[in-house]
Nucleic acid binder design. Structure first.
Length: 422
RNA sequence: GUGGCUGUAGCUCAAUCGGUUAGAGCGCCGGACUGUGGCUCCGGAGGUUGGGGGUUCAAUUCCCCUCAGCCACCCCA
């Protein structure tokens, strides 16, 4: 096929767009219920904005080029740097805590797979300016409520919550893992779920080949899914408060404390969480956490921040697995049909009068047998056909036919243009 | 970026041992049916068999390359 979208990019047909609108609708609805304001930013940014964050592999996956003015630019791979810049501009004027959300289209050049394309829309919700764990609970609660809003229950979707501060304290106190080794060890532990061997190797490498300490860390890794003892540690106080808050909201049934969740990115500083389908057949639905140092690093303003990103791709697949292929609802409510060509002017007048009332109206754009017109009306999903012919015109009426019951009544043209209820 | 599997009509699939004009169902368009739809019947459009090369008298079929999709790595904003 010569005519096809670029790999990882989607042609969005009406059925698919219907599903996207369903997802966006729930995103905006829940964001509103949680008191979040919507913002947006440029899809193209100076590459510098993304390279400023140290330790990011993101740079290697940028859609990056030089614009005609010689600027080094990139399609946005994430929203957070833009958000940081925007917040920094008005940091002193904005009342804290700031609750903002956005639904940017993001781009990354990498090999596509199920649930991962080169372009997607991602809900970003962030609370800025509040370091307390209730802020974490708010964003986790919003993420869970989005899944609830899409009809998923605790047997279908799980929120796994952890806190890097607990792991950092434990690894430091008991295994002497220093700050410079921490990220490597955490990244290693992140692999434990998928492959304990790969995790062991990564951890040992992060600890400069110290096999003894690596073994001790790996012994710990096996127990991270059983949070009991770790939750009792002092460093776990914010996490306990966050989880308790989610329980008080009535969302406790969705939440698992699981210290195996550490998230790949270096900039998380506290609570981290991910949402998964319970069967774990898809990749993560959503991921986020607290990154208190990021805003200062990017925007030069020292404000704590917690948030998450939730993409439309995995979410769409989760819904498709449950509901089957998407169906686009037809906008056509009434189909105006004519008997002969002489009826056209009257039909156009009637169609437009109905449209003025806000009713979705279609009619045949060429001369067609009445049967054909009704066929089209039915396949469009119209609830009613309005037939106008010489007899009706003479009486200043039209035949209103219910396509479901095949019953017909004659209605005056004035009533149809007025307040006739279909 | 690495490895494995798979590519036939818009969709789901067929095509004997490699055999001559690549078929079917659904969908789409038209007709039967110029004042009444979903059913039925008839007809039509739609394919460089993903693309390129090779072997062969002959390739959808066998081989190589390439592109795309899926899966697993890598990574996950």
């Amino acid at each position: 096929m010569s005519l096809s979208a670029l790999p990882g990019f989607r042609d969005v047909f009406p059925e698919a767009l219907a599903r996207r609108r369903q997802i966006f609708g729930v995103w905006r609805e829940v964001a509103k219920r949680y008191g979040f304001e919507e913002y947006d930013g440029p899809p193209l940014e100076a590459t510098d904005l993304y390279t400023r964050k140290s330790g990011d592999e993101i740079v290697g996956q940028l859609y990056r080029f030089e614009d005609k003015g010689g600027r080094d630019v990139a399609l946005r791979p994430e929203m957070t740097p833009t958000l940081a810049r925007m917040v920094a501009q008005r940091a002193s004027a904005l009342r804290k805590p700031i609750r903002w959300f956005s639904i940017p289209q993001l781009f990354r050049y990498e090999r596509q797979q199920r649930g991962r394309l080169r372009e997607h829309f991602q809900l970003n919700m962030d609370i800025i300016g509040e370091a307390g764990p209730l802020a974490d609970a708010e964003v986790i609660g919003a993420a869970v409520d989005i899944l609830r809003g899409l009809g998923f229950g605790p047997s279908e979707v799980r929120a796994r919550v952890s806190d890097r501060r607990v792991l950092a304290e434990l690894l430091g106190a008991e295994f002497g893992v220093g700050a410079e080794e921490l990220h490597g060890v955490l990244a290693g532990l992140d692999k434990f779920d998928k492959s304990p061997e790969a995790a062991a190797e990564a951890v040992q490498q992060a600890l400069a080949g110290d096999a003894q300490r690596a073994q001790a860390v790996m012994d710990l890794a096996g127990r991270l899914g059983e949070p009991g003892e770790l939750l009792g540690r002092g460093a776990a106080a914010p996490l306990r408060e966050c989880v308790d808050a989610l329980g008080a909201m009535g969302l406790g049934a969705f939440v698992d404390v699981d210290f195996r969740i550490v998230r790949g990115l270096a900039y998380y500083t506290g609570i981290v969480f991910e949402l998964f389908d319970a069967g774990r057949s898809l990749r993560a639905i959503c991921g986020g956490g607290r990154y208190d140092a990021l805003l200062k690093q990017i925007g030069g303003v020292d404000l704590p921040m917690v948030g998450f990103g939730m993409g439309d791709v995995v979410l769409g697949e989760l819904i498709a697995d449950r509901d089957g292929p998407p169906v686009a609802a037809s906008p056509v409510q009434v189909f105006v049909a004519t008997v002969g060509e002489d009826d056209r002017a009257a039909a156009l007048a009637l169609a437009h009068a109905l449209r003025e009332r806000g009713i979705g109206v279609e009619f045949a754009l060429k001369k067609q047998a009445l049967g054909k017109q009704l066929e089209l009306a039915a396949s469009r999903g119209a609830t009613h056909a309005v037939v106008i012919g010489p007899d009706e015109r003479a009486a200043r009426q039209a035949v209103v036919r219910s396509l479901a019951t095949k019953t017909e009544t004659r209605v005056g043209l004035d009533a149809l243009a007025g307040d006739y209820a279909f």
